[in-house]
Design a protein around this nucleic acid. Structure first.
Lengths: 231, 231
DNA sequence: CGAATTGGATAATGAACATTATCGAAATAA
DNA sequence: TTATTTCGATAATGTTCATTATCCAATTCG
């Protein structure tokens, strides 16, 4: 009998799939299903929301049964948290890259803002999804800390970016960097929310302009420190 | 026979009560049940969230059957929208009052901010609830415009407040008032979200300070106009 | 007063869905 | 090879809930 093991990888699926080329060790195979489940989860959750999505649908879109899903995750919530972690990592990195690439403070602000707006346009469902889950998670005492942690992750990245800018451009802040980060994160979130509910209400350059204003007001050249900052 | 029909509208139709003192006309009675249902909805929704709350629970907490609920509203969603409208009205009024009571621009900003922070502390579940529903509503094409409208309501109030300030203090804005309102609304939302997920991350005075900075950067004294503003 | 209207109660309906118990087969280990 | 682990499939299980069909009684109208 022909050993037709080449697993009809029909689902082009793209993304994170590990092509079932040749034989896979247990570990590899497991990691592979996990990835495919996560990819399916991303797509289904984004389409239907956390409440609207059914684990059945996710499993089947991944080409597995719910059994497989429950064998790899503790349940719907756990699956979602894993997804969220992965996505936030990626988003944070993207923003950070956009910011660091720019030369001046103002350009950094508008660069980051522009990237954020682009992300809203490109994947509105994903942001929507996070907010939905945020609401769900905040209510549940077991989940809240995990949600808080994920958002703290984002704040930390922002704090780091601000601190970098302050150091590189030799500035002084009217507000601790952490707090500025909170405000910026809040602004970004809020802008996203408004735009998702009513895209016309939010001009694309608004966030950049506001950020610039805010930075202009919140920073000033540092008084004489060791670091050279010639006038 | 005494025609005890003379219920000359004793009911000051204050908020939700309407003591069934004497006989009530059909209309009154209906309005009364509606109010009681809304009050119960507020409490149950706040406690359990939009998804978590069951219409049965709401009806029964109001002392009615689900039949009554469906006789007064088109369903869970409609009930919620009615509630939301009422609540946003009230919140907006509260903020507006807090702002108008102050003398200077800076005081208005911090006054409004402080009131907002108080509201977050006082009724976190309600804000949470709105955000949850926002996520639900944005996804549904039938609901989205209604949600957008409710939020636009808030933006309008803010725009009005800004315009008032600009006029009274004879200022010039670096940004159209509507856009500034969008940004402030966004900031308020975002701050609320952060604080709800992780109260310790958000100092109480942060929003006021940020708003002050933002206004400082976004306003300048208007150049000579008709209105007297002697230098 | 009698007829028509309607607010609200009661009790289905019927579907959706997260989770789990169980089992087969493949992969590792002996 | 045989034994053992474990990934994943199959098929319940059991609950929860929004919504509606039907009906009663009180109110309004003629």
């Amino acid at each position: 009998m022909a050993d037709e093991r080449d697993d009809l990888d029909v689902s082009g699926d793209g993304a994170p799939a590990a092509v079932a080329g040749s034989r896979m060790t247990r570990e590899q195979s497991r990691a592979n299903t996990r990835d495919r489940l996560l990819a399916a989860a991303r797509s289904v959750f984004a389409r239907s929301g956390f409440h609207g999505a059914s684990v059945e649908e996710i499993a089947s879109e991944a080409g597995f049964s719910t059994g497989a899903l429950y064998s790899n995750f503790d349940g719907k919530e756990d699956l979602f948290l894993a997804l969220m972690e992965r996505e936030i990592d990626e988003h944070a990195r993207e923003i950070a890259d956009a910011v660091r690439a720019r030369a001046s403070i103002a350009e950094r602000a508008t660069g980051g803002a522009r990237r954020w707006m682009t992300m809203i346009d490109r994947e509105p469902e994903l942001l929507l999804l996070f907010m939905e889950f945020w609401a769900y998670g905040v209510r549940d005492p077991d989940v809240r800390p995990k949600v808080a942690e994920r958002f703290a992750q984002m704040r930390q990245v922002l704090t780091g970016l601000i601190a970098d800018g302050v150091r590189e451009f030799d500035l002084e802040l009217a507000l601790p960097a952490e707090q500025l980060a909170v405000a910026i994160d809040a602004l970004a979130d809020g802008i996203a929310r408004q735009k998702l509910a009513d895209p016309d209400a939010v001009p694309d350059d608004l966030m950049g302009r506001v950020l610039s204003l805010l930075f202009a007001a919140a920073t000033r050249p540092a008084p004489r420190t060791g670091t050279r900052s010639a006038p």
